[in-house]
């Protein structure tokens, strides 16, 4: 495997559309629930251990070759908010477009054929990792890190938070990102034999409730 390929895939500038999403941070800022570095850290920690863990496990499972159709259905069942399901598919489609140029592969072509409207982003991420010669832990790292880096950089824009403080939040969460990745890869390996029900289903009620409210905002900076 190429360690540099991981840097390419995890780069915030990788053209996969992630910058348009705040991961629920815009709605949380709007509701006064995130007001600075401390509450951002709490927000990110909660997101990491819920939707971050699920995304990391789905991505790892896809990188291990678990059927993308089953994984996509599992991601659907773990994403009750239709606004978030739509966003996840859109992000999946955008990632797939970039990935097919970056790492052309039969698996990515097949994925595009199976999901003309896009698969959940973590499913695409896992297959992309495979195409890039990366492993399940790499895919899980990308997903887990993305679950906190998105809200952190969005909050810099939303609150005018000092970028040093936002980066400090991410650095403090790093050990927990490691833990989440270990759990995610463990359950993904279980899913290879036992099926997708073995994947975690950790949920975050406020993210779901606020995503629906946010989708109805007339003016917003971020898509989610």
């Amino acid at each position: 495997m190429s360690r540099a390929a991981l840097l390419v895939l995890a780069d915030g500038r990788f053209p996969a559309g992630g910058h348009a999403h705040s991961g629920g941070a815009e709605a949380a800022v709007g509701a006064g629930r995130v007001t600075g570095a401390a509450s951002l850290e709490d927000f990110c920690r909660g997101r990491l251990h819920t939707t971050g863990l699920v995304a990391a496990a789905v991505a790892a499972a896809a990188a291990l070759g678990v059927d993308p159709v089953e994984l996509d259905a599992a991601a659907d069942a773990r994403t009750p908010s239709p606004a978030l399901r739509t966003a996840a598919r859109k992000l999946g489609r955008q990632l797939l477009r970039a990935a097919r140029v970056a790492w052309p592969s039969g698996e990515l072509d097949a994925l595009a054929g199976t999901f003309p409207k896009g698969a959940h982003q973590p499913v695409v991420l896992g297959v992309t990792a495979l195409a890039a010669g990366l492993g399940p832990a790499d895919a899980a790292y990308c997903a887990a890190y993305e679950s906190v880096s998105g809200p952190a950089s969005a909050t810099v824009r939303l609150l005018g938070l000092d970028p040093f403080d936002a980066t400090g939040v991410l650095a403090r969460l790093a050990p927990e990102v490691d833990e989440v990745v270990t759990r995610a890869v463990g359950t993904a390996r279980e899913a290879v034999g036992a099926g997708v029900d073995a994947l975690p289903a950790a949920s975050a009620p406020l993210l779901e409730v606020f995503a629906q409210a946010h989708a109805g905002w007339a003016v917003r900076l971020f898509a989610t």
Partner: peptide
């Protein structure tokens, strides 16, 4: 046979971090 909803909520002492934060329960 199709799973349409699969959700788990963990909270209280010893639950993974952030359960009472602004993404999950926010003190509610």
């Amino acid at each position: 046979g199709r799973t349409v909803l699969d959700q788990q909520l963990a909270c209280g002492p010893g639950a993974p971090g952030g359960w009472d934060g602004p993404a999950v329960l926010g003190g509610l």
